[in-house]
Amino acid sequence: MIHNRLNTQPNFAVPDDFYERLIDAHRDLSTEQSHAMNAALVLLLSNHIGDLDVISDALDKARAAVRPTA
């Protein structure tokens, strides 16, 4: 059985287009609204992926990229 793995390699034909779209989606939102939009986006994309192993790997990697405050 082959398990899906999290693809961490560049995967956009034009990465700047994605970044611009992401920034535009946050434009004119308050910090609270921006956080809520990010949470909704995570849930939507996680549902689309639908593989708990891949999502868990992504969560672990994202958490490791952020230093928790003591």
Rank of each mutant, 00 (worst) to 15 (best):
S46G: 15
I23P: 00
I23V: 14
N4K: 14
I55C: 09
D57K: 12
P15H: 05
D51T: 05
H3D: 05
P68S: 01
I23Y: 06
M37D: 08
G50D: 12
D53A: 04
D51E: 02
L41S: 04
N7E: 12
L52A: 06
L22F: 10
N7V: 14
Y19Q: 11
D28N: 01
T69W: 07
R63G: 06
A62K: 06
R21D: 12
L22W: 08
M37N: 05
N38I: 03
H3A: 01
I23F: 05
A65P: 01
N47G: 05
N11T: 09
N4G: 12
G50S: 11
R63I: 08
A39I: 03
R27H: 15
A58S: 04
L52M: 09
L44Y: 07
N47F: 01
A62H: 05
R21K: 14
S34Y: 01
R63L: 09
N38K: 03
I55F: 01
L43M: 13
A13P: 11
N4Q: 13
A62S: 05
N7L: 10
D53I: 01
N7R: 07
F18T: 11
N47D: 13
R5V: 07
A65C: 02
H48T: 04
D17F: 12
V14S: 13
L41K: 02
A13E: 15
S30D: 01
Q33Y: 03
E20H: 11
A64G: 02
M37R: 10
P10D: 08
V42W: 05
L52C: 00
L43W: 04
V42D: 08
A25D: 14
L52H: 05
I55H: 04
E20Q: 15
Q9F: 13
D53G: 01
A39Q: 06
D24M: 02
L59K: 08
N4H: 10
P10N: 07
D60R: 10
A13G: 12
M37L: 13
M37G: 03
P15A: 01
L6F: 02
M1V: 08
D57Q: 14
F18C: 15
I23D: 14
H48I: 05
D57T: 06
A70P: 11
T69P: 01
P10R: 10
A64W: 04
N47T: 10
K61S: 06
N38W: 00
V54P: 04
D53Y: 00
Q9R: 14
G50W: 01
T8C: 14
Q33D: 08
L59R: 08
L52V: 09
P10G: 04
V66E: 12
N4D: 11
A13Q: 15
I2R: 15
L22S: 12
I55N: 07
H3R: 06
P10S: 09
L52G: 00
H26V: 03
L45S: 07
V66Y: 09
E32H: 09
R27V: 08
A64D: 11
F12N: 13
A36D: 12
N11G: 10
L41C: 09
L29V: 03
Q33G: 04
I49V: 15
S46M: 13
N7D: 15
H48Q: 09
A25T: 07
L22K: 10
A62Q: 04
R21N: 07
N7W: 03
F12H: 13
A13F: 15
S56G: 11
H26I: 03
